[in-house]
Design a protein around this nucleic acid. Structure first.
Ligand SMILES: [Mn+2]
Ligand SMILES: [Mn+2]
Ligand SMILES: [Zn+2]
Ligand SMILES: [Zn+2]
Lengths: 154, 154
DNA sequence: ATATTAATGAAAATCATTTTCATTAATATG
DNA sequence: CATATTAATGAAAATGATTTTCATTAATAT
């Protein structure tokens, strides 16, 4: 195993796609892997700066684009004018979920509840829409907006 | 009725909110009212330029912001890096709908064919989420991504 | 007709993201 | 290990949609 590159088989995964395994890429994955929130590129930059001050913001953008394209990271738009990122697969495995967004304070809650119901409905809806509009649906975006507990009581 | 301002009771609606009724605002509503697609601010600017060359892009942005805030216009993000706008209420009355977005060519299809199940599921989900996360849900965003008929056959 | 001030246009600013280009470092090979 | 290849990187500049600034204009009330 190459020195300095520890856990996971990220190295192999990257090499398998023809990409090099670099400090910057490892570091972005480290930061996202430890994150409990949805991070912006700059959030990641600041976290990383403590450990790897040499890595620039540009590289972070490039790395994130790559990770999204590889399906390792999910990019979301919560309407703040900047993208946010999170690992596609949490510690407990695949992690398809949707978001509850507080329009008061910007807080974002992941939810996986009701996903089963949703999946069934989505399949039916997708089937109907595919047929009616001759559309091959491959993905969906579902977000709920409202006020969180804190903002509600103001 | 004030001269030069024809159809609708927009004037009253604006005055009722303490806003003035201007050529620019009328013109934005004219363009959006006639549109059959989702228009960007610049689309509107170009359309309007033929009729009212004096109105600037800045004013269009300001007007759109106002119209969205008044609930007259809906602002959407289809992932192109620019917002698109459409009337909230079509000629046939209220017009809540979702979008099918082609990732191949960018085409956007409105669909209102909510399967009853979809409405029911949304209500159930909103209810469940509200309870579990103490969230007051007021809105939702649902978009399907895929390939349109044309792009599918390539 | 006039006063008030909201609305506007033009230009500059903002700001997240992307592009450019010279340099660095990951990898393959001997 | 040394070296060649070239993907990856950092810094600085560019991009582009949207917003802000500020002096001017025009909608409204009187
Ligand atoms: Mn999430
Ligand atoms: Mn629409
Ligand atoms: Zn909140
Ligand atoms: Zn298409």
């Amino acid at each position: 195993m190459p020195r300095g590159f520890g856990r996971g088989n990220w190295h192999g995964r990257f090499r398998g796609c023809g990409y090099r395994w670099t400090i910057a890429r490892q570091s972005v994955l480290d930061v996202l892997g430890k994150a409990t929130r949805h991070l912006s590129a700059e959030d990641i930059y600041m976290q990383m700066h403590k450990v790897n001050p040499g890595v620039g913001l540009t590289t972070i953008y490039r790395t994130l684009e790559l990770l999204v394209q590889m399906g390792i990271v999910i990019k979301s738009d919560f309407g703040e004018g900047r993208a946010r990122y999170e690992m596609a697969e949490g510690p407990k495995g695949l992690n398809h979920h949707h978001h509850l967004i507080c329009t008061g304070c910007g807080k974002v809650i992941d939810y996986t509840d009701f996903i089963d119901d949703e999946v069934e409905l989505l399949q039916r809806t997708e089937k109907g829409l595919s047929k009616k509009y001759n559309f091959k649906i491959s993905n969906h975006l579902i977000q709920f907006y409202g006020l969180c507990q804190v903002c509600k009581n103001k």
